[in-house]
């Protein structure tokens, strides 16, 4: 039931990301004289301090927050797969070195390191994306390694190598298929985390800059106008609905894949 609901929510957001401009009643930067007006029939989510329609901005923000979180996870996944795969596959000092590097990154709370990186690169959407990738890839490297390592010692891979398969072929054809399932789940959960850190950076002013509508910076704008609760409420609800749905799905799939969990 909950899973169905989560899937419906995510599908709706997907529609919003694809068809956003067609669905939005106004342009995201279109100003009007109706400044800071309450949610009403003409402006369902109300308007901000420049008279911009909040619903249109939440829709426009979806087209930034969601795709960029995908980009972050995709890049982090590629970097993590290469390094984690190498670590698990080659073992020895390569493994040791790569794992020590990930240790260093884990020593920093993600948001603190991401903040420093985003600040140094200069506050912008691109900087914040790079910053989140830098803090996210070690997670993927760890997980990939932990999946590749046991697969390397499994009978079917040993057999394949005895039969004369090359190392790369064994890695790609025999190991990777067993790694993909768990990685998809992990990436779904990682997508939510990426979105939260990205929004956090924007909230602090280190991510996307005005007038771009991005959920984190919209909440930050809303914080300036406490009496106008709708300004902070709706972009926040948007974040929660996406991240919660991703977590519900990821959680359920993980439970299904994990035979130790009896339901």
């Amino acid at each position: 039931m909950l899973v169905v609901f989560a899937m419906v929510v995510l599908t709706l957001w997907l529609v919003v990301v694809i068809f956003g401009p067609l669905l939005a009643p106004y342009g995201p930067s279109q100003q009007s004289s109706a400044v800071l007006s309450n949610p009403s029939v003409t402006h369902i989510f109300g308007t901000d301090e420049l008279g911009r329609d909040e619903l249109s901005r939440v829709i426009s923000g979806a087209r930034i927050s969601i795709p960029f979180s995908f980009v972050i996870v995709a890049i982090a996944l590629v970097i993590g797969s290469i390094l984690g795969g190498l670590a698990g596959y080659l073992g020895g000092w390569v493994d040791g070195l790569i794992m020590r590097i990930t240790d260093l990154f884990f020593a920093f709370p993600a948001i603190v390191l991401a903040m420093a990186i985003a600040a140094i690169l200069g506050p912008s959407l691109t900087s914040s994306v790079v910053a989140v990738v830098v803090v996210a890839w070690p997670n993927y490297a760890r997980v990939i390694r932990s999946l590749v390592l046991p697969a390397m010692h499994s009978d079917y891979v040993v057999t394949a190598r005895l039969l004369g398969s090359s190392s790369v072929r064994a890695l790609v054809r025999d190991v990777m298929p067993n790694v993909i399932g768990p990685m998809v789940v992990y990436s779904a959960l990682g997508l939510g985390d990426a979105m939260l850190v990205l929004a956090g950076l924007s909230f602090l002013g280190l991510g996307s800059q005005p007038p771009t509508a991005e959920w984190g910076s919209m909440i930050s704008d809303g914080a300036q106008y406490f009496e106008q609760w709708w300004l902070a409420l709706f972009p926040g609800l948007a974040i929660v609905s996406v991240v919660l749905s991703l977590n519900v799905l990821g959680d359920r799939v993980r439970d299904t894949l994990d035979p130790r969990v009896n339901r």
Partner: peptide, 9 residues
């Protein structure tokens, strides 16, 4: 799933 800064506001 909830951003703490949002809950704070």
């Amino acid at each position: 799933a909830t951003p703490s800064f949002w809950v704070g506001i």
